[in-house]
Amino acid sequence: MEIAFYLSGLVAVLATLGVISNTNPVHALLYLIVSLIAVALVFFSLGAPFAGALEIIVYAGAIMVLFVFVVMMLNLGEAVVAQERAWLRPRTWLGPALLAGVLLVTLVGTLWRGDIGLVIEGETLTAKAVGTLLFGPWLLIVELAAILLLAALVTASHVGRLRPPEKPPTDRESGARKEAS
């Protein structure tokens, strides 16, 4: 279990490095999928199989497929890769990378001095306990999450609509639009 944790953690970090340093969007997406599956393996090794399965199904399955479809729709070519390569100069990334590194050192240093002392034994927490919690005391939060998803659905279908073909507006339409606005 420990070996699985450290190995998949290493894979996750390397794949994430591949995501943020790649110039081709499709390759970066594939690296991101590898990173998410590695994090799912970390969940399995920590003893949270329900979360690991959800990570694979929802994250690596649904959300990443959404990304892949959108990248397909955008029809990105060699021009984007060249543009990314032009943007990714050491002058550009050195400052933010340095700041992020300082932040990481601070976080790790705080963890190091904190002396938490807890050890994850790897006891499996099954979906039954999670479901009892979610549909018992946390029921209101589940409904709020459902409303959030509904709001995201409405927003995405409104914002993401494609522009209708240009046509001369009739008087009736423009009047209705004025009223609506």
Binding site: E2, Y6, S35, L103, L111
Partner: peptide, 28 residues
């Protein structure tokens, strides 16, 4: 026997910092 909680939190910090760096670096 078992993974210390610190190590898991360090892994989460590394991933978070990498994401933050990517957010600041990229313009696409």
């Amino acid at each position: 026997n078992g993974v210390p909680l610190d190590h898991a939190l360090v892994l989460a910090s590394i991933l978070f910092t990498l994401g933050l760096a990517g957010l600041m670096i990229r313009r696409n």
